[in-house]
Design a protein around this nucleic acid. Structure first.
Length: 373
DNA sequence: TACACGTGGTT
DNA sequence: TAACCAAGTGT
C-alpha cells in the first residue's frame, strides 16, 4: 500500500474509502446533520458560509424553530429574518436567503430546484452552496469546494501554486469531482470538509492522525508547511468612530442602514467617523443636525469599546447626547426613528449595536446615570 | 480580478 | 496582542 500515483482512479478510490471510514468514527453530531429536509440543509449551508460550525450551532436551531418551513420564511418580514440572524454577521446572506425563499415559492411552487443551474440563479447560492444542497439534500453526484477542501486538495496533490487564479480553481474542482462516489456524495463531501477543518488545519496540521496521510503528496514530500500558498491580506486599518445615544424622554434615535454597504437593513445608533484632530462630540452634533435636523446638548462619554469589521479595527466611543429640539426631518432620505428603550430588543442590530443597546437598557434600570428630561 | 462583507475562534 | 482564519457570494 505504498504511495499510489496521485490523481489516478485508484488514488481517488483509496482516499474515498479512508475518508468515509474516518467520518464514520469522527463525524460531529451537528444539528443540521440530523435533518434531511432540503430547506433545512439550505439554511445551514448559507449560515456556514465563512462561518465556523461551532458558531452556527447556536443559531441554526433557533432559526429553524422560528421559520420551520420554506413557506414560513417566505411569508416573514425582512425585519423578522434579520432579527433571527442578529449577531451572525454577513447580513446580506439573510436578506438573500429570504429573497430566494420568496422566489422559490413564487416561481417554483415552493419546490427547491434540483439543478445546479437553477440553484445558482438564486441570490446567495454560488458554486459551493449549490453543490452542497444537491449532494447532501438530493443525493446528487455534485462536488463542493470551500476553504477546508481547498486546503485539503492542495496538500493531497502537493499543489504549490497560489490557490486563487483560474488554473488552480479548475484543478481543485476536478479533484473534488473525481473523488465522488456513485451514491452518498453528500456524505463524502462532508467527510472531506470535516477532515479539513479538524485534521488538515491551516497551521500545524495533525498529519499523524490523518487517515489520508499515506496518499498525501505534500506529506510524502515533506512540503505540508508550504501548501497551500495563501494570498497576502491587506493590513488592518485603525479607525475611530463615535456613536450617538440621543436621549429624548425615554427614547433613543435609531437609524436604518441602506441595503448596500455595511450592516444592510439593520438598525444602528447614529455613527460618525472621527478624523484626527476633530472633537467627536462636535462632529456628532453637526451630523445629527445635518442628517436628521435634530439639535442636541453634548453629554458624557457612556461607553468605549473596540471591535473589528472585516479589515477595520474600530475604536468606538459612545456619547450620551440630550435631545434639544428638532423632529427628524429626512434630509438625506434616511430612515430614522425614536425608539423606546424597552422596544430596542425588537429591532435587528449588529452585534456591536446590540452591545450598546444592552448597556443603555442596563443604565436605564440602574437609573442614575441617564438624566431624564 | 480584487475587494467588501461580520464576528468569533485559534495560534 | 495581533494576525490569521472561517462549510463564499456579489460586484
Amino acid at each position: 500500500m505504498a504511495a499510489l500515483q496521485p490523481d489516478t482512479p485508484t488514488w481517488y478510490s483509496a482516499l474515498r474509502r479512508a475518508a468515509l471510514a474516518w467520518y464514520g468514527r469522527h463525524a460531529r453530531d451537528l444539528p443540521w446533520r440530523r435533518l434531511s429536509d432540503p430547506y433545512a440543509i439550505w439554511v445551514s449551508e448559507v449560515m456556514l458560509q465563512q462561518t465556523q460550525a461551532a458558531t452556527v450551532e447556536a443559531y441554526f436551531p433557533r432559526f429553524m424553530a422560528r421559520f420551520p418551513r420554506l413557506a414560513d420564511l417566505a411569508a416573514a418580514s425582512e425585519r423578522e429574518v434579520l432579527r433571527a440572524w442578529e449577531g451572525l454577521g454577513y447580513y446580506r446572506r439573510a436578506r438573500e436567503l429570504w429573497r430566494a425563499a420568496r422566489h422559490v415559492v413564487e416561481h417554483y411552487g415552493g419546490e427547491i430546484p434540483r439543478t445546479r443551474e437553477l440553484l445558482e440563479q438564486l441570490p446567495g447560492v454560488g458554486p459551493y452552496t449549490a453543490g452542497a444542497i444537491l449532494s447532501i439534500a438530493f443525493d446528487q453526484r455534485e462536488p463542493i469546494l470551500e476553504a477546508n477542501t481547498r486546503r485539503l486538495w492542495a496538500r493531497l496533490l502537493d499543489w504549490r501554486q497560489p490557490l486563487h487564479g483560474r488554473h488552480s480553481q479548475q484543478r481543485l474542482w476536478r479533484a473534488a469531482r473525481c473523488i465522488l462516489p456513485r451514491r452518498e456524495a453528500g456524505r463524502l463531501n462532508q467527510a472531506l470538509m470535516e477532515l479539513g477543518s479538524r485534521v488538515c488545519t491551516p497551521r500545524s496540521p495533525r498529519c499523524h492522525e490523518c487517515p489520508l496521510a499515506r496518499w498525501c503528496a505534500a506529506y510524502q514530500q515533506g512540503s505540508v508547511h508550504l501548501v497551500p500558498r495563501q494570498r497576502a491580506r491587506p493590513p488592518t486599518q485603525r479607525v475611530r468612530h463615535a456613536a450617538a445615544i440621543v436621549w429624548n424622554r425615554g427614547r433613543v434615535l435609531l437609524v436604518q442602514n441602506p441595503a448596500n454597504g455595511r450592516w444592510p437593513g439593520l438598525w444602528d445608533f447614529p455613527r460618525a467617523v472621527v478624523h484626527d484632530g476633530t472633537e467627536p462630540r462636535q462632529q456628532l452634533r453637526q451630523e445629527l443636525r445635518r442628517r436628521f435636523g435634530v439639535a442636541v446638548h453634548a453629554g458624557p462619554l457612556l461607553l468605549r469599546m473596540t471591535h473589528t469589521v472585516t479589515r477595520y479595527r474600530i475604536a468606538l466611543d459612545c456619547f450620551l447626547l440630550l435631545h434639544r429640539r428638532g423632529t427628524l426631518g429626512r434630509k438625506g432620505g434616511e430612515r430614522a426613528r425614536w425608539v423606546a428603550v424597552g422596544e430596542l430588543e425588537t429591532y435587528p442590530l449588529s452585534a456591536t449595536g446590540r452591545r450598546i443597546a444592552r448597556h443603555v437598557a442596563r443604565q436605564m434600570a440602574h437609573d442614575a446615570a441617564l438624566p431624564l428630561s
